[in-house]
Amino acid sequence: MSVRTTLTRSLAALVAAAGPVALPATALAAPSDGPTPSPGAATVTRAGTSFLTATTIAAGQPVQVDASTGDYLYWSFTADAGQVHDISATVSFPGARSGASTWTVEVFDGLRRRQACTAGAQTPTADKAASSVSLGCTLREVRPWAEPWSADPLPGTYFVRLSVADVPEPDLGAPVEVELLVSADGEGAPADDGELAVPLVPNTRAGAVLTDEQAIAPVDDADEGSWLDDLLPALGSRWIWTSVGGILAAVAGVVGFALTRRPRRA
């Protein structure tokens, strides 16, 4: 019994001693949880300055842009039903700064509705001595349909906006290096009770440009009114009710005067 007890205690001591050594090796071997670029994807080197000029990117396509502190950077990507998108960004500061700065990454759908993030550092603060700051935003799963009053993510175009929320005034205009990546998990629409007829894509062509022939249309003399129409305003409900009110006020004045007038004495 004593030999078995001694062996058991020795094995337990070896396991306890090897545990702390084996755990770091396992942690180092584990892959990172952040999104990775797609193999062979071309790097995007520019960004838009508004919703209308947002640069189109695809999921898994890396972005590397040189910008200035205070710029609003816009990108757009397409989302399908059943997908969960993860946006990760890194802002590097090549030069010295005078103080801490707060950066933010925001996501909007095709109707310009701000989407909530379920995970990620959406508004981190970089200290004065920090050389970079990392931002992240994990969106909710895109639904194939939703109620009109809800703000659930739907298939269509989505916009990513990266900007600085709080920065010392001397640091405005300082150069920064921005790296951004959008990843998509999930394929196909989940089993649901509806389907969106048209994706939420912003209409950037609201009207057609008229040519010179269309803009200058001939005016028919018969359509022109007489000089009396220029003097008198067009009759409408407002003029009718005003006239009726004036007549009633005059009648009420006459009746009131007749009731309150005293008869003359002979």
Score class of each variant (00 low, 15 high):
3 V>K: 12
4 R>K: 12
5 T>D: 13
5 T>I: 10
6 T>G: 12
7 L>N: 08
8 T>W: 15
10 S>Y: 15
11 L>T: 13
13 A>T: 08
21 V>M: 06
22 A>E: 07
23 L>I: 11
25 A>M: 13
26 T>Y: 15
28 L>E: 09
28 L>P: 06
28 L>Q: 14
35 P>V: 09
36 T>H: 15
39 P>G: 00
40 G>I: 01
41 A>G: 03
43 T>Q: 08
43 T>K: 04
43 T>V: 13
45 T>A: 08
45 T>Q: 12
48 G>P: 07
48 G>Y: 10
49 T>V: 12
50 S>Q: 06
52 L>P: 03
53 T>C: 00
54 A>H: 04
57 I>Y: 02
58 A>V: 07
59 A>K: 00
61 Q>P: 09
64 Q>Y: 11
64 Q>C: 05
64 Q>L: 06
67 A>H: 05
67 A>T: 06
69 T>Y: 01
74 Y>W: 00
80 D>R: 04
88 S>L: 09
88 S>Y: 09
89 A>R: 02
90 T>G: 00
98 S>R: 10
98 S>M: 05
99 G>T: 09
100 A>L: 09
101 S>M: 15
101 S>K: 11
108 F>D: 06
108 F>Q: 08
110 G>W: 00
114 R>K: 05
115 Q>S: 05
119 A>D: 13
119 A>I: 05
130 A>Y: 11
131 S>K: 13
136 G>A: 06
138 T>Y: 02
138 T>G: 06
140 R>N: 15
142 V>P: 00
148 P>W: 07
156 G>N: 07
156 G>W: 07
156 G>L: 11
157 T>E: 11
157 T>N: 11
159 F>A: 02
162 L>Q: 08
163 S>N: 14
166 D>C: 10
167 V>C: 14
169 E>M: 05
173 G>A: 10
173 G>K: 12
176 V>Q: 04
181 L>D: 00
184 A>W: 04
187 E>A: 10
187 E>Q: 03
189 A>N: 08
190 P>W: 08
195 E>M: 12
204 T>E: 14
205 R>L: 14
207 G>F: 14
207 G>Y: 15
207 G>S: 15
211 T>Q: 10
212 D>S: 04
215 A>I: 14
216 I>E: 12
223 D>L: 10
223 D>S: 13
225 G>I: 06
227 W>K: 12
228 L>P: 09
231 L>M: 10
232 L>T: 13
232 L>K: 14
235 L>E: 12
238 R>N: 11
240 I>D: 15
241 W>F: 13
243 S>K: 08
245 G>M: 07
247 I>P: 11
252 A>E: 03
253 G>Y: 03
253 G>L: 01
258 A>C: 05
261 R>F: 07
